[in-house]
């Protein structure tokens, strides 16, 4: 423990800004992926263990499109929509078969897809890791602000993360489709009885969830290593976010992701040897004190 340097950092604007941006960048990527996972669980009631693999595929697709078109915005859009389409396909062909059966089959199916998609990535892109590198527009010295450094690409990612969070919230709470989705999450039988097409809603929600994971992968591609299996660690963090934020809750996922980002960024200074453990401690505390998570419904 090193509380004195933690306090020192909290009163030093340079350090404070540095650690805050590093918290936010981690939080935004985590939120994008975890919000998809949470949405899928909330509406479909499926624990999608292969969600990290969708994130991985998003990174690979973006890298491939970036090499092909040398346009980064186009690569992000294609990568993210590509995963959305794959998500719809995945839901229609595989997932729909297990809604009615025991939850263990969900585990079996989605876990199997982690292995399958990892091997697909290995066959298509090879076993070597790839580092795409930040696009040329962001290859510039970081902004300097009160003795802190902020890479321009990180500003971009944080802005995109916040925009997506707002859009997602508006979509779910302010539009007719959003209301339908929430209604389906609450009682799909009732929605069906009212003559609405729940099949479409299920496919659409899984597509959106997959797209969010794909977007996370697309934005991570320039700064993280891309390799078969890169989704496995991320999916663990995502589950923590979903549990802490409340299963199925998007605002909860946002808050939990930001909280975890800050715990990491400042934990590294205050508790340098156990910063990884802090997150698990947080989860344990939440599970004991408020088992449904920040914004989860109690009956879950």
């Amino acid at each position: 423990m090193d509380l004195s340097s933690l306090i020192e950092c909290l009163v030093d604007p340079g350090c404070l800004i540095n650690q805050t941006t590093s918290a936010l960048i981690f939080a935004m990527l985590l939120f994008l992926i975890a919000s998809g996972l949470s949405l899928i669980f909330g509406v479909l009631g499926v624990m999608n263990f292969a969600h990290g693999s969708l994130y991985m595929l998003g990174a690979y697709l973006t890298y491939t499109f970036y090499v092909g078109t040398s346009s980064f915005p186009l690569a992000i859009i294609l990568g993210c929509f590509g995963i959305g389409v794959f998500g719809v396909f995945f839901e229609r062909v595989f997932l729909k078969r297990i809604y009615a059966v025991h939850i263990l089959y969900q585990l079996l199916l989605t876990y199997a897809f982690i292995l399958i998609l990892d091997d697909v990535a290995k066959l298509v892109w090879g076993y070597e890791f790839i580092t795409m590198g930040a696009p040329d527009a962001f290859q510039r010295p970081p902004l300097e602000l009160a003795g802190s450094f902020i890479p321009t690409y990180y500003i971009f990612v944080i802005i995109v993360g916040i925009i997506v969070a707002v859009l997602l919230w508006m979509f779910l709470w302010k539009t007719r489709y959003g209301k339908l989705i929430r209604a389906t999450a609450h009682s799909s039988e009732m929605v069906m009885a009212l003559g609405k097409n729940t099949t479409l809603i299920y496919a659409g929600v899984f597509g959106i969830g997959a797209m969010l994971a794909g977007l996370g992968g697309a934005l991570a591609a320039p700064i993280r290593s891309i390799f078969p299996g890169m989704g496995s660690d991320v999916v663990v963090d995502c589950f923590i976010v979903v549990v802490v934020g409340g299963m199925g809750s998007i605002p909860g996922a946002f808050l939990a992701a930001i909280l975890i980002g800050f715990m990491r960024a400042f934990g590294i200074i205050g508790f340098p040897l156990v910063e990884e453990a802090l997150i698990f401690i947080l989860m344990a505390v939440v599970l004991i004190v408020r088992p449904q998570g920040f914004f989860g419904r109690a009956e879950l």
Binding site: N18, S22, F149, D233, L273
Partner: peptide, 22 residues
């Protein structure tokens, strides 16, 4: 003056990097 031990396959080193810069 400082040592850091990120876990293996850590995807994000930003917090470590800013700490080193500090």
């Amino acid at each position: 003056v400082g040592q850091q031990w990120p876990k293996i396959f850590e995807p994000d080193y930003t917090a470590h990097i800013t700490k080193i810069l500090k």
